[in-house]
Design a protein around this nucleic acid. Structure first.
Lengths: 114, 114
DNA sequence: CCGCATCCCATTAGATACTG
DNA sequence: CAGTATCTAATGGGATGCGG
């Protein structure tokens, strides 16, 4: 009886109630934007990333990187099969489309912090 | 022995490890950007907001609005002291400084959703 | 050296009923 | 009308230890 349209939008099988919440679903959380922010300048190894984010735990960093990889924002490249491993993370072209947003977010946080 | 500088940045008494995470701490979460997105166009009453976000619960909407108010992004104005109440939510000038970011976020989500 | 696994806790968000 | 109260579920994230 009710003509209520939900008008959800979708991405990778997940549904969101609004275009803004889609983006936040992908870059939201405590660490994802920080990772993307550091990868903007170029590729980084796992441990290099850790050093730029001294307070993140290994597990969390792993999980967040995996999530970013699954959403197609970063690529994970393994260079050695034998230890010591060398793993590099890079933004994909798709991930790079977020750069303007990440920059605005970082800039705003920077201005506000004083 | 280690000259490790933490270099945290602060806002409203909370500490963040990066300028990007500060912003995300304020507009992050499942609903805050959606609320801000709808308030960009002008003030809205509580129930009007609910209608624009059919899947949010009353409790969550309340909590998120309160958090946004505490961070100084929105103002809550009460027009009647006796029921039926009339409460309007508006962006503060400070909240308006986020508009470009919210717009980019919404736009990106919109493009990606197809 | 890189990063996964297990366990656990804190925080966030939903369902529902009720109130000034 | 605009919330609060209570309870519960889902998620995020930390600590620690193991393995290639």
């Amino acid at each position: 009886m009710e003509g209520q349209e939900k008008k959800v939008i979708q991405f990778k099988g997940k549904e969101y109630p609004c275009c803004a919440s889609l983006t936040m679903g992908i870059i939201g959380g405590k660490w994802k934007t920080v990772i993307l922010y550091h990868l903007m300048s170029g590729k980084l190894r796992y441990n290099e990333l850790r050093k730029t984010m001294p307070t993140v735990t290994e597990r969390t960093l792993s999980l967040q990187l995996k999530a970013l990889e699954e959403d197609g924002l970063v690529i994970r490249k393994v260079y050695n099969k034998k230890p010591p491993l060398k793993v590099e993370y890079t933004l994909t072209d798709f991930g790079k489309t977020l750069i303007p947003i990440i920059e605005s977010i970082a800039e705003w946080g920077d201005k506000v912090s004083e």
